[in-house]
């Protein structure tokens, strides 16, 4: 523990390059979304990164609307969006929709999924769903202090290998691991780390085949679409709103929007 404490104070430490920008989110280079199950400490991570003092409460459902803040690291400016906590993205409640729509259409450069280390299995359900939407994911394995109290240990390397995305252990309440998290978010945003996300294994061959075929069909028609796989899944589920959107060409608009956002960032 002693070495950790020394590193935290060192000028060469990652955190030394961190500037907390509070609510100032103008001219950002990257947009980072914070997702996760309820009460895993998303708002605490948010505060640790932005320097904002958004009140955190120990009860599920505290964050109802999304909250934005900024930080800058290594000359890059980031906008951080704190999303309401959700157990899944597959049902239809209002708070889930805010989270899902932002990850899908807000086009975040990196999605940080805050995960409760003491309830890994349940939290992984959401991680796997998010991996179906976007590749650029960082898993923030939070509440390690609590896990330790409950004699639970999680092998971060095994988890990272299985999920195919970086995993960073943190105790956000005590500001531990935040510097490493920033570094990894930066690396994923800038493309220094390329994620190779987990592909669902426990589904039957014909489902995988159907999803793949529809995904490539969508990609063929809508060039530059980033969440084709998710669209394919929702279409196969018979998502009425999506089918209507497809009918009156709103999907095409969405793709256009996405491309425009991409261009803006490139500029």
């Amino acid at each position: 523990m002693a070495t950790e404490a020394n590193c935290d104070g060192c000028a060469f430490n990652n955190a030394a390059n961190l500037k907390k920008l509070g609510v100032n989110v103008s001219n950002v280079n990257f947009v980072v979304a914070l997702a996760g199950n309820p009460n895993t400490g998303k708002s605490t991570v948010f505060n640790a990164l932005t320097g904002l003092k958004q009140h955190t409460g120990n009860w599920p459902g505290k964050t109802i609307a999304r909250m934005e803040g900024g930080f800058s690291y290594n000359d890059k400016r980031y906008k951080l969006v704190d999303l309401p906590g959700t157990y899944s993205l597959l049902s239809t409640s209002e708070d889930e929709e805010i989270a899902r729509n932002f990850i899908l259409f807000g086009n975040p450069d990196v999605t940080v999924v805050v995960v409760d280390a003491t309830r890994l299995e349940r939290n992984l359900n959401l991680v796997l769903q998010i991996l179906e939407i976007t590749k650029r994911v960082v898993v923030c394995l939070n509440l390690l202090d609590e896990a330790k109290r409950h004699h639970i240990k999680v092998d971060e390397r095994v988890l990272a290998r299985e999920l195919g995305v970086p995993v960073v252990g943190t105790s956000a309440r005590f500001n531990k691991g935040i510097d490493a998290l920033i570094k990894v978010v930066h690396d994923v945003a800038t493309g220094e780390i390329i994620c190779k996300p987990h592909v669902l294994k426990s589904i039957s061959g014909n489902i995988r085949h159907a999803v793949n075929r529809l995904t490539s069909e969508i990609e063929k028609h809508f060039e530059g679409i980033t969440n084709s796989r998710w669209l394919a899944i929702r279409l196969l589920e018979g998502d009425q709103s999506l089918i209507e959107a497809l009918g009156d060409n709103r999907i095409a608009d969405m793709v256009d929007n996405q491309n425009r956002v991409m261009e803006k960032i490139a500029v």
Binding site: L124, D155, E156
Partner: peptide
């Protein structure tokens, strides 16, 4: 899948 991964990692 979540259950399998959790078993390996925890």
């Amino acid at each position: 899948d979540a259950s399998r991964i959790a078993q390996k990692a925890v």
